[in-house]
């Protein structure tokens, strides 16, 4: 009801409109209450401190992994890890966001929030992979790119944009898996791929529900409502055809069984690569462009197009 009390303070609203709005709002609240829990549970699972992170998957999936460091411009960003892995008779380039588990490693990994040098390292590694025909797999798990003065000065926006461009340009097969938090542009920067898979209890969103609520509801405690209306769960994203496949998690969530979660991911990766590697490379790249070209919903001459 606090929302209802807030409504009349909006300027320039006529009474009739207001009644419609209040009734719509009530409907929304009703729907919200009903669905809230499941959506918010997923947000919490996606951020679960014991959830497997990129290096956990790498350890469980690949026998030989060589981590490669540095962007050759400025530094090495520990919030993004990447390197070469041997995988079923071929080499893979694996790149992913990395969070930490204890205070020290969280600080080192900057809570999984990359700076420009992280995205530039990723580009360097992807170009290396492209040169040798090595497929690229990315693992997405970040609250977002780091918002800081130095990060801005070194071109955070441009680093993300160029990471996207680099991914669009790759000739090798590319697969992204959203394994935890897919936070905004900082997540998307590594997810412009032929296939985008998503673990069941992951989320992927344009903005954190807390920040969205703070802006639109002027109240960050409305985050659960924001989470719901933003449509950030794997089911929502599959419906909107943003992702290609939802991967089921071990019972109770990936944090319950890291090895089982890694097996699921490995199977899905194998299937995706099989499909992509047998495609004509030109066609494969063309389909990547066509897929992202289709993204969005708009009306044209009054007709809604998907």
């Amino acid at each position: 009801m606090t929302e209802l009390k807030r409504l009349p303070t909006l300027p320039g609203v006529h009474l009739k409109d207001e009644i419609t709005k209040i009734s719509q709002r009530l409907k929304e609240l009703g729907r919200g209450r009903h669905l809230d829990k499941a959506v918010w549970d997923k947000v919490e699972l996606a951020r679960h401190p014991k959830r497997p992170y990129t290096l956990d998957y790498i350890e469980n999936m690949f026998a030989g992994f060589i981590e490669l460091h540095g962007d050759r411009c400025y530094g090495d960003d520990s919030a993004i890890v990447g390197g070469l892995a041997a995988y079923q008779g071929r080499t893979l380039m694996v790149i992913g966001h990395q969070k930490g588990r204890d205070l020290a490693s969280r600080t080192k990994r900057n809570f999984g929030m990359p700076r420009p040098e992280g995205y530039r390292k990723a580009q360097r590694l992807m170009q290396l992979a492209d040169k040798f025909g090595i497929p690229v797999m990315t693992l997405i798990d970040t609250p977002g790119a780091f918002p800081g003065i130095a990060a801005e000065e070194r071109g955070q926006g441009s680093a993300i944009a160029n990471s996207l461009l680099c991914m669009a340009r790759l000739n090798v097969p590319t697969v992204a898996v959203i394994i935890g938090e897919g936070g905004s542009g900082g997540a998307l920067a590594l997810a412009l791929t032929d296939r985008v898979l998503m673990l069941e209890n992951s989320v992927y969103s344009v903005i954190t529900p807390e920040a969205c609520a703070a802006i639109l509801w002027k109240d960050s405690s409305e985050a659960h409502l924001a989470a719901q209306t933003l449509g950030m769960t794997s089911a929502d994203l599959a419906r909107l055809e943003i992702i290609d496949e939802v991967l089921p998690e071990p019972r109770g969530g990936a944090h319950r069984d890291h090895a089982a979660a890694a097996r699921i991911l490995k199977d899905a990766l194998e299937e995706a690569l099989r499909e992509l590697e047998t495609m004509n490379p030109r066609l494969r790249k063309k389909e990547r462009f066509e897929k992202f070209r289709r993204m969005g919903v708009w009306k044209e001459n009054g007709l809604t197009l998907f």
């Binding site: 993300i160 996207l164 461009l165 344009v206 943003i242 919903v297």
Partner: peptide
Amino acid sequence: EGILSLLQMAKTTC
């Protein structure tokens, strides 16, 4: 437009 707006970054980059 939620996630759809995020993906416009990928679309325009393509």
